[in-house]
Design a protein around this nucleic acid. Structure first.
Lengths: 192, 192
DNA sequence: ACCTGAACACCGTTCAAGT
DNA sequence: ACCTGAACACCGTTCAAGT
């Protein structure tokens, strides 16, 4: 009679995959596990996404949008001075990565080829960083400043969440040191 | 009669796996592909390594030792002043990552759980960074300085090799800017 | 329009059997 | 001591058939 009513949604599938990713890493995100979690059979997933790469791409796109929102809201909650905004941004980024380490790891280091956020999602995550960098370093040096800041924050947090800091010491203080140094160096005129 | 003579070696297997990794990424490093490249059948690999994780661990251990050697030799070739040594270190690190991006990606961001360099290999790669950081920032701030430098270099180069810098601009100059800023900020006394 | 079971080629891994 | 073919459970994916 009537065509089979949809038993799930793209959003539900993405949420299931994202949950599996955070709980068990990328290898736990199998089509079978996703299907079971949303209550359908694995072949049905292909009516929603072209293949596993496309599905993971949708996951990482959602993650990028979430990150963008978290960064914007952190900047809004902070004051209006450049350094304070940058610190809020850096702290919010680190908090996001430590809260969702495996999703964050997929953002910049594509473990699976072809798994990328959409350009829109990428732009949404990059925009607050570029704005704060522009306010801090001036518009013509904003891009380089944003890259330096993002590289440090991404590098530090990815190493931290991968357990690479094994020699003791105060990891939190090292992050703040890096932000302080970059802040001082990147402020308008400082690196000329 | 005589027991079957070994047709391959651990080193040959590691080299085959590393070649496959650099050519086709982690998913190209299948037990079948490794076995074919060294001229044996897949089950025979388990007489040399416990499983795929252990084999990949041996690969990443070799990569870490190679990185350590490349960094030490770059520092030795550079002059004796702290800033020059740090620049040599940073440039050598970036060159290494851009030359072997997929192997380098495995060093700090374990895409496959349980795939880690041995502590010795890790120490060999970290030592030159710690030494230069100590000369630059003083012994008691060496660890934090080394972490900040490594985080930046790793973050920048991993993003660069993943193609994350899509907005144009001078990527090389941004790296040098970051090193310059960190150098100035981390020199003894600068961040007190 | 969406879901299903059956099937395909592949994967890592185990194991008894060969030399 | 090392290598092998056969087998196992799993994986992503396709497809004809159901509703």
């Amino acid at each position: 009679m009537s065509p089979a009513r949809s038993r799930t949604s793209d959003e539900g599938i993405i949420a299931a995959a994202r949950g599996l990713l955070e709980e068990g890493g990328l290898e736990a995100v199998s089509m079978a596990a996703i299907a079971e979690r949303v209550g359908i059979r694995p072949p049905s997933l292909y009516k929603h996404f072209a293949d596993r790469s496309a599905l993971l791409g949708a996951v990482v796109t959602e993650v990028a949008f979430d990150l963008g929102r978290a960064l914007v809201s952190a900047v809004e909650r902070s004051g209006t001075d450049g350094p304070g905004r940058l610190r809020a941004l850096a702290d919010a980024y680190r908090a996001f990565v430590l809260r969702s380490p495996r999703a964050a790891a997929l953002l910049f280091a594509p473990a699976v080829p072809g798994v990328d956020p959409t350009p829109e999602a990428n732009a949404a995550a990059a925009r607050p960083v570029l704005e704060v960098a522009a306010a801090l370093a001036g518009p013509e040096r904003a891009l380089a400043a944003a890259r330096v800041l993002t590289a440090f924050a991404h590098g530090f947090t990815s190493m931290e969440s991968a357990g690479a800091f094994r020699l003791g010491g105060d990891v939190d203080a090292a992050y703040q040191t890096g932000i302080t140094v970059l802040l001082a160096g990147l402020e308008r005129g400082a690196a000329d």
